[in-house]
């Protein structure tokens, strides 16, 4: 194995590790949000700093690879893809942190009925499933898995699109739940963005492996 191959292998492992960190952050945000767990939210704030530092480290590694190895062809595509991917992963971490920041504002437990109608936990689980799939897809360069993520992203979009109507109907009967509903909708929007970012990461994986640019295209 050449020195560049060894370096790229390590870079890819670090990227998968970063996806795992973001997944854990999102998982924790789900538990913290559902259980109104401020301690867990505080853990998320601390881990967010680690995630940011991790991004900076991979960023520097990519810069070094460009400067020292002059990567070409698939090596070049991998480094370009990773540079874009780590920024998306970092933003997933930001969304988990954003959700965690709502917890101190929550004054009471959420209505189970509203939860179910919004398909809130289903949405969370889908987003977490996407991140899990991304870990495997990136690790094994499995594009069929990467393409499945596009379908899950559509499901997240549908849930988000349906949310305003569900909330409006619910608030007609219980106007006191307005603040709760706003936090829920904000979280739903963040989860929908997590889906978009997972989709972007999948697109970068396809670019790396197949040299195809699939973003902004309906056919992937």
């Amino acid at each position: 194995m050449t020195q560049l191959e060894t370096t790229l292998k390590a870079l890819k492992s670090s990227t998968v590790e970063m996806i795992t960190m973001a997944k854990i952050q999102l998982q924790k945000s789900k538990e913290a949000f559902l259980n109104k767990d401020q301690d867990l939210a505080d853990e998320i704030f601390i881990s967010e700093k680690h995630l940011n530092n991790f991004e900076l480290r991979i960023d520097r590694d990519c810069e070094n690879i460009f400067a020292l190895h002059n990567p070409v062809a698939s090596d070049l595509r991998l480094v370009i893809a990773i540079l874009k991917v780590i920024s998306d992963i970092e933003r997933i971490g930001d969304h988990a942190e954003g959700i965690a920041s709502y917890i101190s504002e929550l004054d009471k437990k959420f209505e189970k009925d509203l939860f179910a109608k919004l398909r809130f936990t289903e949405m969370y689980d889908l987003a977490l499933q996407m991140l899990e799939m991304l870990e495997d897809a990136f690790d094994r360069e499995d594009l069929s898995l990467a393409r499945k993520i596009f379908k899950l992203d559509k499901s997240l979009n549908e849930i988000k699109l349906a949310a305003p109507d569900v909330i409006t109907t619910y608030l007609r009967n219980d106007s006191e739940a307005t603040k709760q509903a706003l936090f829920l909708f904000s979280t739903i929007r963040k989860l929908e963005r997590v889906g978009d970012l997972c989709k972007n990461i999948s697109e970068q994986l396809i670019f790396y492996v197949e040299a195809k640019v699939v973003k902004h295209r309906s056919e992937k």
């Binding site: 070409v72 062809a73 698939s74 070049l76 595509r77 040299a211």
Partner: peptide, 11 residues
């Protein structure tokens, strides 16, 4: 050639 060569040998 340097971004996406067609042949594996070139790559």
């Amino acid at each position: 050639i340097f971004t996406n060569p067609s042949m594996e040998k070139t790559e």
